[in-house]
């Protein structure tokens, strides 16, 4: 089902959590709401679910205005950050809950069969009779997903679904959720503050800051063309250096960075560590190595430029470099934003 938010506003007490957000999610799409804490992403998700009422604006499910439909009639599947499994029910009873309380009567055999199907889907066949307190965090999250899917929701909503899990479990669950989404094709909206998770999982990423959408697009679009310094910064490690433009070119040490369309004056240059290189001489920013950190994928150099900016850059594992060495930072790619 297609979801459309039209200029939705939400204020808590005196704090404006969401300022006029408009958003369209196509049927079957997997969309991430990405933003730092306090950006309003969870509030938006809860409004779509009906767990909060919007103060202004409309939410449409397909052609239907769902703004005032109570949560229990909205037909959404919601997966909570801390699972919210019913602790006194077994895994099977948790999954069956939605079918048991539903207005459409189902006989016991139908419910049992559906529970068995869902347990198979989330790969928890043997755990039907366990209580939530007896299974691991990753398993609980899968039970929560199965429970949400049991009522055939029109939309699946996930609030920081992997936030409370170990890094390895997270990666596995992410891939697995992607597979489930492909299999079921259900419109899915999830909230995360982890950019890697959003880029890894979503068809489209919506980036929020202070209750507003600052950019949306495919992972490729937002990675290659961050619309603002905030997005650039939020999507990954970056170095920020102040510089001045003259005649459409910004200069950093010996390096020249084209800045077409910028008037002469101060700008901010953003450099990803992987877009920089280290060389003993050449056209670049003269710098001194402060420290080298070794990582599985390569080496990270923490350097100090001659003008006093701290810069981090990633180089190949075989690069020979030591602390206190002097050299030049070469620039492969850079992005220029107005100083602000």
């Amino acid at each position: 089902m297609k979801i459309r938010l039209d200029n939705v506003v939400k204020t808590f007490e005196t704090f404006r959590a969401v300022h006029g957000v408009s958003l369209e999610i196509e049927s079957g799409e997997l969309v991430a709401l990405l933003g730092p804490s306090g950006s309003g992403k969870t509030t938006i998700l809860r409004m779509v679910a009906g767990l909060e009422y919007a103060d202004a604006g409309h939410i449409y499910f397909g052609e239907e205005d769902a703004t005032d439909i109570p949560v229990r009639d909205r037909g959404v599947g919601f997966v909570f950050q801390h699972y919210a499994l019913f602790p006194h029910m077994t895994v099977a009873e948790n999954i069956a809950f939605g079918m048991k309380v539903s207005k459409t009567r189902r006989d016991k055999a139908t419910i049992d069969a559906r529970v068995a199907d869902l347990l198979r889907l989330v790969q928890l066949d043997g755990l039907a009779e366990r209580f939530p307190g007896q299974i691991s965090g990753g398993q609980r999250q899968r039970v929560a997903l199965a429970r949400a899917l049991a009522v055939d929701p029109k939309v699946l909503l996930l609030d920081e679904p992997f936030g409370a899990l170990d890094a390895n479990v997270r990666r596995d669950l992410r891939r697995w959720l992607r597979e489930i989404h492909q299999e079921l094709g259900i419109t899915t909206l999830f909230v995360t503050h982890d950019q890697e998770e959003a880029l890894d999982l979503a068809d489209r990423v919506v980036i929020l800051d202070k209750g507003q959408i600052v950019q949306q697009g495919t992972p490729e679009e937002v990675c290659r063309n961050p619309a603002s310094a905030f997005v650039m910064n939020f999507l990954g490690d970056t170095n920020r250096i102040s510089a001045a433009v003259s005649d459409g070119v910004a200069r950093l040490g010996e390096a020249e960075i084209p800045a077409p369309g910028f008037a002469d004056g101060p700008v901010e240059i953003f450099l990803r560590p992987s877009d920089l290189g280290w060389s003993s001489s050449g056209a670049g920013i003269p710098a001194t190595v402060a420290r080298v950190i070794d990582r599985p994928a390569g080496r990270r150099i923490l350097a100090m430029t001659a003008t006093g900016d701290a810069v981090e850059l990633d180089v190949a594992p075989e690069t020979r470099v030591n602390a206190r060495e002097q050299g030049v930072i070469t620039i492969e790619r850079a992005r220029v934003y107005a100083a602000g």
Binding site: A49, V71, R72, R74, G77, F78, F80, A84, F86, G98
Partner: peptide, 9 residues
Amino acid sequence: EAAQTLGGS
């Protein structure tokens, strides 16, 4: 809230 989203009265 979970019970509500699942349609519980």
